[in-house]
Write a protein that binds this DNA or RNA. Structure first.
Length: 784
RNA sequence: UCCCCGGUCGUCUAAUGGCAGGACGGAGGACUUUGGAUCCUCUAAUGGUGGUUCGAAUCCACCCCGGGGAACCA
C-alpha cells in the first residue's frame, strides 16, 4: 500500500489527495476513478484533460483502475453512434478501460429501487405541481423557497404514486419525485431537487422499458457508489452539486462511499468547447463534420494529424488546478511539434510552384539524389531518392525580386542551395504578357551537392524544391484557427452576437496544385511528414486514394523569421480591466461598519469600556472581544488566571479562531483559564510565539494543560546566545555559498537561514534572538 | 442581490509560514544544407488595503475582479 502511494507523484492537488488517501488507507487502499461521458456528442480536447487525470491516476497507481461509463440518463439526446465514437477516441488516446465499460442505463432498476427506499425513509416525495409551479416555489437566490403542497404526503401515498409513475399511468410532467431536503437552503440544488421525471421516450439502450428517468444529480452518485468509485473527478461547475451528491450517497443503502473532487476544465484559445456550439458547427455545416480538422474534437485533432502522445503530453505540461483558464494555442502547437520532430520523416513539397529552368544543366539530363529522411540531429536511419533535372519548381514564397536586407532565399543575382541538391543562382526573370512571373532562369554550380560552391557564389540559405517532371501533383489543406477571437463564447455573450459571427473565414485554405516528391506515392493514408520548411502534414484518411494525394497541415514550423505578435489573450484581459477609483482602506471600511452597527447591550458596552480602561486594551480589540458574552467571559477568565491582557487579546483574535475551526468557544476542550496559562508561558519567554501556537494546536485537539504539553514535549525555547551561537555557526558554515550571496546583497536569504536554524533546533530557537545573531554573523564579511 | 469557488510572469503552473521556481511565449546570441531542431543568456508575476508574525503568495479582516448557482440538461 505504501508503495502505491509512493508511485503517485504529487503533480497536482488531485493527485495529492489521492496520495494522502492511499497513505491513510481511506478507501481500504483502493483507487477507482471513472470517466463518465454522456453519449450526445464527440469528445474534445477538454475531455482529453479529464481523461488524462482519471485514467492517468489509474495508470500511475498499482492496482487502481478507471471505468469508462456512459452517463446515458437522458433518452432524448443520446445515441449509440456517439458511444462508438467516444470509445474509439478514448482508445486512440491510449487509455484502457479493460473490463470496466459501464452504462448508467444498466442501473435503472437499482436507481428505482433506491427511489422507493428514499420514499420509505421519508426522504423523497411525489410532487404533482406543474413544472412552472415547482420553479416558482423554489424561491430565488435571495429568498427561500416555499414547501410544495404535496410535500407532506404519506409514505404510502408516495409509494403508490411512484409505482404508478413507473407503470406508465401518468403523462409526461404529471408528477415528479423530489428529494425532501431543505426548501430554505442557500444552495438552490438542495431545495427539494427533482430526482425522477416522467418521460415517455425511447431510450437507445433500454427502449421503452422505462417511462421515468433519473436526473443527473440523483443518478451520478449512485453510479459511482455502485461501481465503488473512490475519487469521482469532475469540473468545477459541479462544485455546488457536491452537497447533493453527498446527500444521495448518505441516504441510500450502498457499501461504498465515493468522494467528488472538482478541477478546472480545459479551455483553449480561439475555439469553442461547448457541446451545444460544437453541435451547431456540425449541424449548420460550418465545418465538414465532427472530425473536421479545424474542430477541437479528438476526432478532428486526429484527422488534423495530432498524435495521442502529443495531446497527453500537452495536458501533462498544463497541470491541473482550480483556477479558470484559457490555454494558448501555442502550447498545443509546441506539444505536437515537439513530438513530430522525432517522428515525421522529412519530404519536399512545393505549395505554389514557380518554374525554374537551369540553363547550364546538360540538355535532357537528369540525376537522382540520395536524401536523408531525417536531419542530422534526429538519430534515425532512412533516405529516399529525389529526381533532379534541368527543370524544377520552387515555392513562390522563396523568390523575391526586391528582397529585404536579411533575405536568405532566391533573388535576382543571388544564390541559394536547393535542399539536398546543388547551388543555383538566379540570372533572369521571365514574365508573361500580363507581367506575372512565368519562369526563373538560373545557373547551377556543378558538383555542389555535398560540397561548398566555388567562390563568388554567396549562398544565403537553403530552399525546398521538386523536380518538374518527377514530382506528383497533390492537394494540400492549410488550416488555421477556427475563430478570429480568443474567446468566441464570451465575445458573443458580451456583444449579443452569435458565436458563429466570429468564425475565421480563412480557417481552411485549399491548395489544389501543390507538387510533392514522388517518394510518398505509395505510403498509406494517415502517414505523417514534415514538409521541410513548411510544417507537419498528414495524408488525409478520408479523401486520399491511390493516385490522389491529399494532405492536411497539422501545424506550421516555428517561424522566427515572420514572427507574429504577443499573446492576444493577455491583451484582451488587460483591456477588460475596468477603470475604477481607489479602494477604501480596510480601516475606513471598519469605521463605516461600526457606524452602521446597532448599539450593543449595556452590559457588554460597560465591559468594553472596562477592558479598555482597566486592562489597557486598544479600542479595536476591546470592541472585538465584547461582541458577545462568551468571548468576553473567555477573555476575562484568561486574564483572571494571570495572563497578560494585550497578548491574550491578540491571540484570542488572531490565533485562536484558526485552531478552533468551526467550533464555538464553548465547544473547545479547554477554557479561558488554560488559555491564560499558555499566554503566561509565552509572555515570560518560556515559549516562543511559534511554539506557543503549536501548543495551542495540541490544546485544541486534546484539551491538555499547556504546562503538561510543554513538559512532555520539552518545548522550552532556546533564548540564550551561548546555546544558539554554535547552531548559527554550523548553519552558516554549511551554507557558505548562500552566505556569500547574502553578503553580496541577496538579503532575502535570511529567511532561508532562519528556516535552517529552526530546523536544527526543532523550532525551539527564539526567533528574535536567532534573527539578531544571524544578521550579526552574516553581516560580517567572510572570515577565513 | 444571496450562496459557493477562484485570483502568482503575456499564458499554464510550482512554492502546505522560511531562496517566488519551471514550462510555453518573447528578446538576444551560438550552431545549422530546414529562417526547423538543439544549446546558452535575458525578459517578466503574488489583485488592493490593513492586521498577525522574527519572517506572509501562504494565516485573519475588509474591498476589488473573475467563474458557477434559481432545467423535469449533464
Amino acid at each position: 500500500m505504501a508503495s502505491a502511494a509512493e508511485s503517485l507523484e504529487r503533480r497536482d492537488f488531485i493527485r495529492a489527495i489521492v496520495a494522502e488517501d492511499l497513505k491513510a488507507g481511506t478507501h481500504d487502499g483502493r483507487v477507482v476513478t471513472r470517466f463518465p461521458p454522456e453519449p450526445n456528442g464527440f469528445l474534445h480536447v477538454g475531455h482529453a484533460k479529464a481523461l488524462g487525470l482519471s485514467f492517468g491516476i489509474a495508470e500511475e497507481v498499482p492496482g487502481a483502475r478507471c471505468h469508462l461509463r456512459f452517463d446515458d440518463t437522458n433518452p432524448e439526446t443520446e445515441d449509440e453512434a456517439y458511444v462508438e465514437a467516444i470509445k474509439r477516441d478514448v482508445a486512440w488516446l491510449g487509455y484502457d478501460w479493460g473490463e470496466h465499460l459501464y452504462f448508467a442505463s444498466d442501473y435503472f432498476p437499482k436507481m428505482y429501487e433506491f427511489a422507493e427506499h428514499l420514499v420509505r425513509e421519508g426522504n423523497a416525495y411525489v410532487d404533482s405541481q406543474t413544472e412552472d409551479e415547482i420553479r416558482e416555489g423554489r424561491g430565488t437566490v435571495t429568498e427561500p423557497g416555499r414547501p410544495s403542497p404535496f410535500r407532506d404526503r404519506t409514505v404510502e401515498e408516495n409509494l403508490d404514486l411512484l409505482r404508478r409513475m413507473r407503470a406508465g399511468e401518468f403523462s409526461d410532467g404529471a408528477h415528479v419525485l423530489r428529494g425532501k431536503i431543505d426548501m430554505a437552503s442557500p444552495n438552490m440544488l438542495l431545495r427539494d431537487p427533482v430526482l425522477y421525471r416522467i418521460r415517455h421516450a425511447s431510450h437507445y439502450r433500454t427502449g421503452d422499458e422505462w417511462c421515468i428517468y433519473p436526473l443527473y444529480d440523483y443518478a451520478h452518485p449512485i453510479e459511482d457508489a455502485l461501481e465503488c468509485v473512490t475519487h469521482s473527478l469532475c469540473t468545477v461547475e459541479f462544485e455546488i452539486n457536491r452537497a447533493l451528491y453527498d446527500w444521495v450517497v448518505e441516504n441510500i443503502p450502498v457499501e461504498c462511499r465515493p468522494r467528488q473532487y472538482e478541477f478546472a476544465r480545459g479551455n483553449l484559445d480561439y475555439t469553442v468547447m461547448s457541446k451545444r456550439m460544437l453541435l451547431t458547427l456540425v449541424k449548420e455545416r460550418y465545418v465538414r463534420g465532427w472530425d473536421d480538422p479545424r474542430m477541437p474534437t479528438v476526432a478532428g485533432l486526429r484527422r488534423r494529424g495530432f498524435t495521442p502522445e502529443s495531446i497527453r503530453a500537452f495536458w501533462e505540461r498544463m497541470g491541473v488546478a482550480k483556477t479558470q483558464s484559457r490555454v494558448d494555442m501555442g502550447k498545443l502547437e509546441f506539444a505536437i511539434r515537439d513530438d513530430l520532430n522525432a517522428k515525421a520523416p522529412r519530404v519536399l513539397c512545393v505549395l505554389r510552384p514557380v518554374r525554374v529552368l537551369i540553363t547550364n544543366y546538360p540538355d535532357g539530363g537528369s540525376e537522382e539524389i540520395e536524401a536523408a529522411s531525417w536531419p542530422h540531429d534526429v538519430p534515425r536511419e532512412g533516405s529516399r531518392r529525389l529526381p533532379f533535372s534541368g527543370e524544377i519548381f520552387i515555392d513562390d514564397d522563396d523568390f523575391r525580386e526586391d528582397p529585404p536586407a536579411d533575405w536568405k532565399r532566391l533573388a535576382p543575382g543571388r544564390a541559394v542551395r536547393l535542399r539536398h541538391g546543388h547551388v543555383i543562382r538566379c540570372d533572369e526573370v521571365v514574365r508573361d504578357d500580363a507581367g506575372a512571373i512565368r519562369e526563373l532562369r538560373c545557373s547551377y554550380a556543378p558538383d555542389s551537392i555535398s560540397s561548398e560552391p566555388p567562390s563568388g557564389w554567396e549562398v544565403g540559405g537553403a530552399i525546398h524544391w521538386v523536380d518538374a517532371e518527377g514530382s506528383l501533383s497533390c492537394e494540400v489543406r492549410l488550416y488555421d484557427r477556427l475563430f478570429t477571437v480568443p474567446a468566441p463564447d464570451v465575445e458573443a455573450a458580451e456583444s449579443g452576437r452569435d458565436f458563429t459571427d466570429f468564425l475565421n473565414p480563412d480557417s481552411l485554405v485549399v491548395v489544389e496544385n501543390a507538387r510533392i516528391e514522388p517518394s510518398v506515392a505509395d505510403d498509406p493514408p494517415g502517414s505523417r511528414y514534415q514538409f521541410e520548411r513548411l510544417g507537419y502534414f498528414i495524408s488525409d484518411e478520408e479523401d486520399s486514394a491511390p493516385g490522389r494525394l491529399v494532405f492536411n497541415r497539422t501545424v506550421t514550423l516555428r517561424d522566427t523569421w515572420s514572427k507574429r505578435g504577443g499573446s492576444a489573450a493577455g491583451e484582451r484581459r488587460r483591456a477588460r480591466q475596468p477603470e475604477r477609483g481607489p479602494d477604501l482602506s480596510a480601516e475606513e471600511h471598519r469605521r463605516l461598519r461600526q457606524a452602521a452597527a446597532p448599539e450593543r447591550p449595556p452590559e457588554l458596552e460597560s465591559r468594553r469600556r472596562r477592558f479598555e480602561s482597566e486592562l489597557g486594551l486598544d479600542a479595536e480589540d476591546a470592541e472585538l472581544l465584547t461582541r458577545d458574552a462568551a468571548t468576553a467571559d473567555f477573555f476575562a477568565a484568561a486574564v483572571g488566571a494571570g495572563a497578560p491582557p494585550a497578548r491574550t487579546a491578540n491571540w484570542l483574535i488572531n490565533e485562536l479562531p484558526r485552531h478552533a475551526g468551526d467550533r464555538a468557544l464553548g465547544e473547545l476542550p479547554f477554557g479561558g483559564h488554560a488559555f491564560g496559562a499558555l499566554m503566561a508561558l509565552v509572555e515570560d519567554g518560556t515559549l516562543s510565539g511559534a511554539i506557543g501556537r503549536e501548543v495551542l494546536a495540541e490544546m485544541a485537539e486534546s484539551g491538555a494543560e499547556p504546562g503538561a504539553i510543554v513538559d512532555r514535549r520539552g518545548l522550552r525555547q532556546i533564548a540564550d546566545a551561548s546555546s544558539l551561537e554554535p547552531v548559527i555557526d554550523r548553519v552558516v558554515a554549511a551554507n557558505q555559498n548562500k552566505a556569500a550571496e547574502y553578503r553580496a546583497g541577496r538579503t532575502a536569504l535570511l529567511g532561508f537561514f532562519m528556516g535552517q536554524v529552526m530546523k536544527e533546533t526543532g523550532g525551539k530557537a527564539s526567533p528574535e534572538l536567532a534573527r539578531r545573531l544571524l544578521e550579526e554573523r552574516l553581516g560580517r564579511s567572510a572570515d577565513r
